[in-house]
């Protein structure tokens, strides 16, 4: 009972704040560099596609911006045929 009344006294604003912080951290990486990520994605895919047939849906490109360092992560799943050839 005490805990319940304590929680309800805390109000809804802290929940709003937390939800926004989580959501915007995600959205900023999605939209923040939308042009750059799109360009990189297209060009990198073009290079890989020259050599192997890749499934567009099996490519994940994410960008994370930190204070001092930003990272671009490219995750390409190669088709089975390439594994066997290698």
């Amino acid at each position: 009972m005490n805990l319940l009344s304590f929680l309800s006294r805390r109000g809804t604003a802290p929940v709003a704040r937390e939800r926004l912080q989580i959501l915007l951290a995600h959205e900023r990486t999605a939209f923040g560099n939308s042009d750059l990520v799109a360009v990189l994605r297209e060009e990198i895919l073009a290079v890989i596609a020259k050599h192997v047939a890749i499934d567009q849906d099996k490519v994940k490109i994410t960008m994370e911006r930190g204070n001092s360092v930003s990272t671009l992560e490219i995750d390409v799943e190669l088709p089975k045929a390439v594994h066997q050839a290698a």
Partner: peptide
Amino acid sequence: RAERGEMLKIEDVLEI
């Protein structure tokens, strides 16, 4: 309302 925790505070919005 911000004081009672029912509304985002100025600092919250500025921080975000």
